[in-house]
Computed example of a mutant assay.
Amino acid sequence: MRCRPTCDDDGGLGEPNSRFSRVLAESPGSVSTVLKHHRGIVPLAARGRAGHLNIGERETISRGVGAGMSFRTIATDFGRSPPTVSREID
């Protein structure tokens, strides 16, 4: 009889696929593929590179400039430095 692993052992956090693969007598890659396909592993959120402005920040800058706000005020609104805003405008 094959055992089915549960996530209750450690609250579902940090369980390596190799542990599940041993219980299921399958390769770790197969276990990983099935878990991803069935949403057993939450994928990381897509993010841009650190320090790069995202589309929302660029839109905030555009609207701020259109409203006649200073670079410093625009930067303070979303937690960036004034030179970052200035470089985006140039």
Rank of each mutant, 00 (worst) to 15 (best):
S81P: 00
T33F: 03
D9S: 13
V23C: 05
I89P: 00
G29M: 06
K36H: 03
A75D: 02
V65Y: 00
G64L: 06
S21P: 09
C3W: 09
S30R: 13
D90C: 12
G48S: 09
R2W: 03
S86M: 07
G64W: 00
G40F: 02
I89H: 07
H37V: 05
K36A: 06
V23G: 01
P16Q: 10
F71W: 03
P83D: 05
P43G: 07
A25F: 07
V23E: 12
N54S: 06
S32C: 08
D77N: 10
C7P: 08
A50R: 15
D8P: 02
G14Y: 03
F20Q: 13
S18I: 11
N17E: 11
G14A: 11
N17S: 08
P5A: 04
A25G: 14
L24C: 08
R2E: 01
A50M: 01
G12N: 05
N17Y: 06
F20T: 08
L24P: 06
S30H: 14
T33M: 11
S18A: 10
D10Q: 10
S27Q: 11
V31F: 02
T73S: 13
E26M: 15
S81C: 06
V23T: 09
I41C: 00
F78N: 03
T33Y: 05
G11E: 02
R47A: 15
V34D: 09
G14S: 11
G14P: 03
C3Q: 08
D90A: 11
L35K: 13
R39P: 00
C3P: 01
N17D: 11
L44F: 04
E59Y: 02
A67K: 04
L35E: 07
N54T: 09
P83S: 12
F78Y: 06
H37W: 01
E59H: 07
R63Y: 03
S21F: 06
L35V: 02
R87W: 15
M69T: 00
N54A: 05
D90Y: 15
E88F: 08
T6D: 11
P28V: 10
S18H: 09
L13V: 11
H52I: 07
G64D: 08
C7V: 14
V85C: 04
D9C: 12
D10P: 07
G14K: 04
C7F: 11
E59Q: 08
R58N: 01
P5N: 01
N54W: 04
V34H: 09
C7S: 09
A25R: 15
V23Q: 14
S18D: 14
G56P: 01
E88N: 10
N54F: 06
G40W: 04
R19Q: 13
G66V: 02
N54H: 13
S27P: 10
V42I: 12
L44T: 09
V65A: 05
T76P: 00
S86Y: 14
E59V: 03
P83C: 12
R39E: 12
C3M: 07
G51Y: 09
D10S: 09
V65C: 08
V31P: 02
P43E: 10
L24S: 04
G66F: 03
I61L: 02
V31T: 02
D8A: 15
G68H: 01
R49T: 04
L53I: 04
